[in-house]
Write a protein that binds this DNA or RNA. Structure first.
Lengths: 182, 182
DNA sequence: TGTAGCATGTAAGCCGTTACATGATTGA
DNA sequence: TCAATCATGTAACGGCTTACATGCTACA
């Protein structure tokens, strides 16, 4: 009877597990969206805010998270905490679900495929601006990596961030070489 | 009044442009799906067969492709050819649409993020089987690269395939290093 | 006073998938 | 004759986005 949740649901559940190890009160939907923007975005997706609330409600219906009305602050809000059941479900998912191959949606490579329909100058400027965008992304991810620090408790997230950085570096190298080969 | 088509639509239109330079009769939906499996899959997506026909009908409604009933063979089928209007639309799209940053949906990285919920042995075997899957993928893409040959007319597709190969190689390297660091 | 950020949602709709249905041809 | 491949679709539905609505708080 294990519920059939989407990968995105489990990803959010994962963020809530991490929160539960460092804090007591849980996260608001708004805060969860921010965490997703900082981490999930690089390896998965950062769902729209509206989607976050939808998933949170779904997780709540399954008993995977508790929703606690927080009226202590100036503003009323709901805080979400993962439950024991939720943690079990996440662990089960990690153990049993298929390890799908990554999906890459690469508009730049797609356009390059049709490079003969673009001018050579246009192709080059496309690649240049992609390298620039990679630099910006790398910068953002580097900030995330630095924020994590070197504590053992975040060893895995740190390794994943480094993976992302290495990927961006390799991509820059590949594209620069490609530019020369054209 | 430029129609608002999805990137996938334009990607398929791109396949039809390539076909038009090498052949006269056009492609059937079935053949188009095969081409997508061989090329688009690696950098974008290969839409389901049903989706191919849906897109083909849409492109036809816009006048971007001609649908020709082919009763010459043993089997009746419809062949699709890109029109001048379609070619213009594709070129315009290449010139004007936004160069979105690639989207990576990486279940392995996502799981690694929660590595502390898995056993260390399980993490390692996950990474091992990912490296294996990368090898298989690389093999498939290599066949595509080889099939293309070194003709100038396919210089761009060839470069894109090489990009993909370099990416897979880099990914293997990164993961192997990661495994040691754990 | 007004803009930015906090906080939570609903509604509509697109893109794409899986499941299913149909039927013809090729070759073992 | 039976499975595989060719060939074309429809139906249902899931996941996710954009657009929109609401209202409060902090601060310049």
């Amino acid at each position: 009877m294990t519920a059939n949740l989407s990968t995105t649901s489990y990803a959010l559940l994962g963020l809530l597990v991490f929160d539960s190890t460092t804090s007591e009160q849980g996260l608001t939907g708004y805060e969860l969206k921010q965490r997703a923007d900082r981490t999930l975005r690089f390896y998965w997706v950062s769902p729209a805010t509206s989607q976050i609330y939808t998933e949170l409600d779904r997780l709540n219906r399954h008993g995977y998270v508790d929703a606690i009305d927080d009226t202590s602050g100036k503003r009323n809000t709901r805080r979400f905490r993962i439950t024991g059941v939720g943690r079990d479900s996440l662990t089960t998912w990690l153990h049993t679900s298929e390890h799908d191959f990554p999906i890459l949606k690469h508009p730049i490579a797609l356009r390059l495929l049709m490079g003969s329909l673009m001018g050579p100058g246009e192709v080059e400027s496309m690649l240049d601006s992609y390298v620039e965008a990679l630099g910006a992304r790398r910068h953002e991810l580097e900030a995330v990596r630095d924020m994590l620090g070197d504590d053992d408790s975040v060893a895995y997230p740190a390794r994943v961030a480094e993976w992302g950085l290495a990927y961006y570096d390799s991509e820059v190298e590949i594209v620069n070489k490609l530019r020369k080969d054209l």
